[in-house]
Write a protein that binds this DNA or RNA. Structure first.
Length: 455
DNA sequence: ACATATATTGCCGGGTCGAC
DNA sequence: GTCGACCCGGCAATATATGT
């Protein structure tokens, strides 16, 4: 019984036959197939460019060729700016085993072990929980709270012990030395405790003043913060004002007035109040800032749970953007957009943003946008969002600030006017937002609406 | 490691065209 | 008319990627 020839050996003869055909002036495939004992149709198909099974790219690929190219370009770009992609970034989007198989297909990419994160930086992101205060055990001896009571008890003990039978002068001296030493130590400890308490109080006062200063300089995005400042000031001034003082009566009348009807009014009135305080109470003489509208930033601040935000614009110094936002006005596939974004056209708006939490606990962000695709014309913004936010929030603030900044650019508005206005485009667009820490799809793009790729 | 999905190859039968 | 080269449609086999 004749055994079926292996696919590999036939493939070897096909390669040899094709080599022979290439060298001949007159191509006769049927004759060559007979010569090499090959199926004529198969040799003809291979001669016309059909791939062998072993050379197939694979029929069931998760990403298209363009999408996989976009991944490669993204990795190259990260490498070019000195950043590193993490396995989890890719697996969360594509699949558990896809990344490893991607690395097998592309030996130019490989995994290296990252350096250990500095402990201070880690703690800045994840502050350790406050250790629970353990109450003293119920059978613990009662400790005298003051130096005076301690001294009294020492004298009482010494007098009682001195009258005991068999007490020697030597033992009396040693006992007195021990008791006096204990008193000295207790006194020193009490002084140190008082000093620590005074220092903590001074720091708390300084922080409170710093927080006020931020609010005054920044303009405000959240009414709750302003109202809290306002309540504190009213309470302090009312307490310091005599009951029959006309100014005190005016303050009391103001305090019992109903609250502002809507948040925008509250922001305006509170901002006006703080400007007044800035000029009169703190002796500052700053020019009046532009009235702060209810912006995307303030809306964003209100959507993020936890304490209210304090937003302080800063002078941006970012030169090399580390993230990007792409708004595609065309109804192109996301894959094409992802490949395309490296060179946005006049119909695209690219916003590069980044947010981070600093070691001192404060969160900040930066964003730049190219107002013209053809000219090197950039606008930029940055700011702090207070110490009550996470790095993730700062990323979002960076994106929002970048989009808002771009929407105010006359150049951007004019060149995108024929398309969808940007403030509408990014509200109805689809997108993914990334950070190194938390890549997450925020909606699918099955309805064919424009894409926002935020990476 | 195994099961599944799927695009492509490999093969077969049949048809067309040109040279002899 | 015969023969060889080439082409086409349909079906089974298969290699690869992916999911479990």
């Amino acid at each position: 019984m004749q055994q079926a020839e292996s696919y590999k050996s036939v493939e070897t003869r096909i390669q040899a036959a094709i080599e022979v055909l290439r060298k001949r002036d007159v191509v006769n495939i049927a004759a060559t197939a007979r010569e090499f004992n090959l199926p004529e149709q198969r040799l003809r198909a291979r001669w016309n460019g059909r791939l062998a099974k072993s050379d197939l790219p694979g029929p069931n690929k998760r990403l298209t060729e363009a999408q996989e190219l976009a991944v490669c370009m993204y990795l190259d770009r990260l490498d070019a700016i000195g950043a590193q992609a993490r396995m989890k970034m890719v697996t969360s989007f594509v699949g558990e085993h896809w990344t490893q198989r991607f690395l097998d297909r592309h030996p130019e990419y490989y995994v290296v072990k990252a350096n250990t994160m500095d402990i201070d930086r880690k703690l800045a992101h994840d502050p350790p929980p406050t250790p629970p205060t353990t109450p003293p055990p119920p059978d613990a001896p009662e400790v005298p709270l003051t130096i005076r009571s301690l001294k009294r008890q020492f004298h009482s003990v010494y007098n009682e012990v001195c009258h005991l039978e068999g007490m020697t002068p030597s033992l009396k001296r040693r006992l007195k030395t021990a008791l006096n030493g204990g008193l000295v130590q207790a006194h020193a400890g009490a002084e140190a405790a008082a000093e620590i308490k005074a220092t903590q109080e001074a720091e708390a006062q300084a922080n409170q003043a710093h927080e006020k200063h931020w609010s005054v300089r920044a303009g405000l995005t959240n009414a709750e913060t302003v109202l809290e400042h306002r309540r504190r000031r009213f309470a302090a001034r009312l307490a310091a004002t005599p009951a029959n003082n006309p100014a005190g009566n005016r303050l009391r009348n103001a305090a019992i007035k109903p609250a502002c009807k809507d948040q925008q009014t509250m922001v305006k009135s509170a901002s006006a109040l703080l400007r007044f305080v800035s000029r009169n109470a703190f002796g500052e003489n700053e020019p009046e800032p532009e009235p702060q509208p209810t912006t995307l930033m303030s809306k964003l601040a209100n959507t993020i749970p936890r304490r209210p935000a304090i937003f302080e614009p800063t002078r941006p110094t970012l030169r090399h953007p580390t993230g990007r936002v792409l708004i595609d006005e065309d109804e192109a596939p996301a894959a094409l957009v992802a490949v395309f974004h490296e060179c946005p056209t006049e119909n695209h708006l690219a916003v590069y943003s980044d947010g981070s939490r600093l070691e001192d606990g404060h969160c900040g962000f930066g964003a730049v946008a190219r107002t013209s695709a053809t000219m090197q014309d950039w606008c930029r913004t940055s700011g702090y969002v207070g110490d009550n936010k996470e790095a993730y929030d700062a990323e979002l603030f960076g994106i929002a600030a970048g989009l808002e900044m771009a929407s105010r650019s006359a150049h951007v508005r004019s060149r995108l006017r024929q398309q969808t206005p940007p403030e509408h485009a990014w509200h109805r667009g689809n997108g993914y937002y990334r950070t190194f820490a938390r890549p997450k799809p925020i909606c699918d793009n099955s309805d064919g609406s424009p894409n926002i790729v935020i990476t």
